[in-house]
Design a protein around this nucleic acid. Sequence first.
DNA 1: CGCGTTATGTAATTTAATTACAAGATATCT
DNA 2: AGATATCTTGTAATTAAATTACATAACGCG
Lengths: 285, 285
Amino acid sequence: MNVLEKIVNSVNSFSKSERKVADVILANPQTTIHSSIAALAKMADVSEPTVNRFCRRLDTKGFPDFKLHLAQSLANGTPYVNRHVEEEDGPEAYTAKIFESTMAALDTARQRVDINTINRAVDVLTQAKKISFFGLGASASVAHDAQNKFFRFNVPVVCFDDIVMQRMSAINSAEGDVVVCISHTGRTKNLCDIAAIARENDATVIGVTAYDSPLAKECTLVLSLDVPEDTDMYMPMASRVAQLVLIDILATGFTLRRGTKFRENLKKVKDSLRGSRFDKKDFNN
Amino acid sequence: MNVLEKIVNSVNSFSKSERKVADVILANPQTTIHSSIAALAKMADVSEPTVNRFCRRLDTKGFPDFKLHLAQSLANGTPYVNRHVEEEDGPEAYTAKIFESTMAALDTARQRVDINTINRAVDVLTQAKKISFFGLGASASVAHDAQNKFFRFNVPVVCFDDIVMQRMSAINSAEGDVVVCISHTGRTKNLCDIAAIARENDATVIGVTAYDSPLAKECTLVLSLDVPEDTDMYMPMASRVAQLVLIDILATGFTLRRGTKFRENLKKVKDSLRGSRFDKKDFNN
DNA sequence: CGCGTTATGTAATTTAATTACAAGATATCT
DNA sequence: AGATATCTTGTAATTAAATTACATAACGCG
């Protein structure tokens, strides 16, 4: 694990003064690696030995060794760490934290996602007679987004964020149909029911949800992300971004599988939007 | 240029002893970063000042600084870059590329976003009598997501992805109302109209859109992201993720501005979801 | 071959980091 | 509540590391 993450993770096992050191380092990591122990101690308003003890607590040999590790962390591909937003944060602070936490979450997701399952999901999707995306609450917007993407592929795709519609749709599903159920926790009862109903009717059910959750058990294929979420905010943020990226990946896999001539079809859809736009370049939405 | 490359490049401009130092470092770079100047001098069979001079020749402040640079080189930072998906990419390749491109986009967005505007947007939102989120196409799901977030704050919030509804809503807006228009390009004619109508009716219009676009011109406040987009896929991907993160930031700023007691209210909303869930831990959607 | 220039090493100095210890704070138990 | 133990933290002393200043050696060139 890299030192930056380690600091963030063990932030509660720190003492008051160590905490001060951690804050200063996290706030200006670049400055830290070019500072002496004395300078850092002064910035954090603690004594030099405290800084030293802080370094040792993180399993480094001492301050110079700590700086080395820190330098590597910063240079590494994962400079982003999940940092919690705090009460007294100003706009710069929370903006930076949210961007960084999201990037950190995506990095984690990338490492944990199972490529084989993705590949199989793409397989199933490309052969689907009909694709349905179901989500509730925050996951509903992910489902909508998925619909927007797959709709461009000229395949029958529906999306419902209404339990009754979802239920009706699930009951009417048949072999060859693919149902994608999206839920961060995988514990939304209604959605579990939908998944079960769809499977009883021989549809293939793909779950974009937590590993080992009740919903996961109802699915044919589970794409789990297991992204750490900032519970302080009481809102799904990073997890939902990861879900969206996963959808992007499925959509991309889909187009690649369908080949070049299919891509031309995509371009046609995009061009069709041009009429609704003001001139200059071309682009979507 | 990283230090390792620099050593290799300037290997012929070195003196005999410096060359010895370079050889030792190139042979065991990992060892070097954990050695003292004395140890390295001994390994290279030169004096300590020679090592020091070697470091300075490479434009570092001295030996410790050189070790820092070397450590960073070794961490071989593959920072996130926007890598385009290609026809022949397999599942691992396109999965990695999409994750990385998205992270790169977020990184760009973070650097370009204007904190002042964010702060002002949060200001306006906290004082809003009513908040409306409008988007079309792919941006509609971003608008939905925003609604889902702000709805938890117990403020009057609406979201329409239908031009007619948007239009009616815009016409009925009044001073103190805030309208958020979301569009990647900012060239969707219908949305520009909506923004203009809302402003004519004294609403504050926040645009989450491209800088200097037709839509931007109609807005009171413009939050531009200017994220590079992979045009090959003909789908908005990274841009929409950046928009979502921006919404997260606005929502976070909102809750922070409203203070602690308000956060308890948020928790209440979250807890209310519990009944619809299977047990174990608690979380959203 | 001798002079000037550059390269290198030795020893002194300075700077930085660590250790040892003591005082203060905090928790725990009676 | 008070006393004792434990954990934190800081001050001062010590040690280690790096840098500088200077001297000597190697090398190139007329």
